Simulated scan of single mutants.
Amino acid sequence: MYRFVFTQVLRRFDAEAVHHLTLRLLRLLAVLPFVKRVLHDLFAPHDEALRIQAFGVHFPGPLGLAAGFDKDAGCFESLAAFGFSHVEVGTVTAQAQPGNPRPRLFRLLESRAIINRMGFNNAGAAAAARRLRKPRGVPVVVGVNIGKTKVVPEAEAVQDYVASARQLAPFADYLVVNVSSPNTPGLRNLQAVELLRPLLAAVKEVAGRTPLLVKIAPDLADEDIDAVAELAVDLGLAGIIATNTTIARAGVSSTETGGLSGRPLKQRSLEVLRRLRKKTGDRLTLVSVGGVEDVDDVWERLLAGATLVQGYTGLIYEGPLWASRIHRRLARRVRRHGYTTIREVIGKTA
């Protein structure tokens, strides 16, 4: 049904307009406690075989929603009710900012991909903290992804991230330092280890007991991926999220600038995951994102060493019950292969 609506109706409208309409509907659902709980009972993962623990946090399943959808922490409970095991909100910046000029979100239907150059549009850390501190009506693991405010110079980036972390870490189940979006000028420079070390060390100190992860780009050279992995282990981070969107355009016809997500990112994202697993073993929690479309992709990422998997573009093309369907199929596959829990699958082919 959703595919018909998407191909016949939604694809004819501006992508960002549809996104904002979706957010409004999800926020409306968020204020209807009974409906939200019913949906959660129907579609959220409840199977014991899917439960998994990562960096001290219990997840009802491995598949979550990547950052970029719920930028202002306005509808994470509704998203959990539709089947995501966790929702990563953000990217949130210390200061509110409008992001880049429109149009800035584009569908590439033939490639099952999206290009975005949103530019961290969000209402700021204080606004997100106010929403996150409210009691949760349904169980949901919430990660908070933080980035650099655009107007802040690179030399002051550490203080900017620390300001966000100080406000948001107390209300997050885990915190993510995003230094890999291609849509904030100079941001990816912070992935260089000599700049990344003091940044992560400062944020980790402020985060306290909140697990801290770093999100990296797929466009890093292999030796730079290794260097970030070594740094994450050395600093005692909880994990690495791999990967963000790519600036590469192999296999797509669009010349729009911005970060490319979806099917064209699948292979590189998997390559980065395998490299990280080889480099770090089980010393870090690896979260794989990029080109995840179906249960086969999730299964492959788990076998390759990911403890958690995230998607975004798959939700756009497959609809609101996408995560719920994958979790159901994943539970059946776990049992079909003779396993008791999803934990037994992780790293089998690493």
Rank of each mutant, 00 (worst) to 15 (best):
T285N: 06
A157D: 11
R3H: 01
S261H: 06
G347A: 07
L235N: 02
L42F: 10
P264I: 02
C75S: 12
V142C: 07
L79F: 10
E205I: 08
L195S: 07
P198C: 09
A49C: 14
F76Q: 07
A44C: 06
L25M: 13
D224P: 01
K134Q: 15
T93P: 10
T307P: 01
K279L: 12
A248C: 10
R133S: 10
P33E: 01
V287K: 07
A123K: 12
K278T: 13
K148Y: 12
L25R: 15
F82H: 01
Q97E: 13
P185T: 07
G147T: 03
V35A: 15
R301I: 00
G186M: 10
V35T: 13
D296N: 13
L308G: 07
A128F: 11
L195D: 13
V89E: 00
G64K: 04
D47T: 06
T307F: 06
A128S: 11
V295L: 05
T7H: 09
R112E: 09
P33K: 09
D224F: 07
T22M: 09
K279D: 00
G56F: 10
L187P: 08
S288F: 02
P62C: 02
T7F: 03
L260Q: 14
G137N: 02
A207P: 00
A192N: 02
T340C: 03
R112G: 07
I316N: 06
G99F: 08
L105V: 14
S164W: 10
R11Q: 00
G83H: 00
